[in-house]
Design a binder for these strands. Structure first.
Lengths: 134, 134, 134, 134
DNA sequence: TTTT
DNA sequence: TTTT
């Protein structure tokens, strides 16, 4: 089937990331990410609108995020949109939309160090063009 | 500020699109879009998971969608994620996440005709490379 | 550094893919991919313009492409732009721009079978939401 | 036809942008944009590789770029890949690949002022959610 | 609620 | 709840 569900975000963490582990020991990291947009309202005044995204990372990506990200950090997240259904206290259906990140790039970090690109077990090609013998 | 909120979807409409108009006459179009993903579960069985996205289009894009899209149509949507806060009957805060589409490309249509690309008032460059005199 | 180099393509192969191997045995796959766009020229006539992209895949992704893709196949490619410098016969500098694919999704295949998503060693989260114990 | 040709770049201008005009007065802006990537070479050393992209903007977007961008500025560009064929002095076919930008967001500017989002005639929805009467 |  |  021809289908695509792709999200690309650059924004800042509103709080420190939270890392938990599933029963089998897989890391899951959650944090909220703010993206801001400026626009002019009807009276021509500049306004800023902030959007908050629920980010969810898994496995190695979750561990890296937990170790290197912190409140206020600027980060690039690429992944897919996912809506989970759950029941509130009254038993009514509720829905929460999250971004499941498959790739992450830190644009600033806890200690404002150099950016670092990481992906879920994804590797750079082991050789670069210079190595191609044709 | 360095910020990005970008969504790219290809999927099928679950129902015919609904077009409404604001008090000032601006068209707003809403529909749900399905994206599907296959994965293997723990027992190695192939499973399909469908994600439903609430799409919202405005203005000219909304009118085109209302006219040319229908249930089952395959469509490309590019836009941004937006979460709206509202109150349910009990007065409790509720949140709904939508994709506000800024660009749309029909990959199939009501009459299964040729695909067509449209954007919110966005124009192709009025000249192509052949016209550049340098 | 805050930097992004991202390409997303959906198109058809102009020829069968070619797979070669580096001295150390890493697979490299090359093929050209056509994307088409329709536009109206100055006289209002509908025109179609085809763009050809040089795709390069590495490692496992290269092997899968070599095995499952063929001329005419529809494919989704995600990666980065890369320009290589080389010398022509006269010793003059020449440049070739390629798309190094990091993710691939077959939208049709040799035998027009079901689509399949693959990425460079990238894994789905080993657990889905249902497994989260919190 | 189901086809997609999408490029998303964040990088810095290597030189001031050049703006020219077609015979009919349409502005065309060209500049080169650097994206950088870090990777570890075979010996485990961190290396940085810079990719240079030829950016081409048209019309209003070209005028804004010419006015507000300068060497060293950080910018977000979204558009499509395009390869032009031309003849060198010896009459041989040559190809140049460019990114035709359809959307631009300044992440820094000549005077390091606030970022500003612009698109080719593309408008924000004239009303925001608060205005929706349903 | 779509589709293969 | 972020940031400029």
């Amino acid at each position: 089937m021809s289908s695509l569900n792709k999200v690309i975000l650059i924004g800042r963490l509103g709080k420190d990331p939270e890392v938990r582990f599933t029963a089998s020991g897989t890391a899951v990291c959650n944090f909220s990410l703010a993206t801001s947009e400026t626009f002019k309202d009807k009276s021509g005044e500049k306004q800023e609108k902030t959007e908050w995204h629920n980010i969810q990372l898994w496995s190695k990506l979750a561990e890296i995020a937990g170790e290197y990200l912190a409140k206020g950090a600027l980060v690039y997240i690429e992944g897919r949109i996912q809506t989970r259904k759950w029941q509130d206290n009254s038993g009514a259906d509720r829905y929460t939309t999250e971004i499941v990140g498959m790739q992450m790039q830190m644009l600033s970090s806890k200690n404002e160090g150099r950016s670092e690109s990481v992906a879920g077990d994804q590797e750079e090609p082991p050789f670069r063009d210079d190595d191609i013998p044709f």
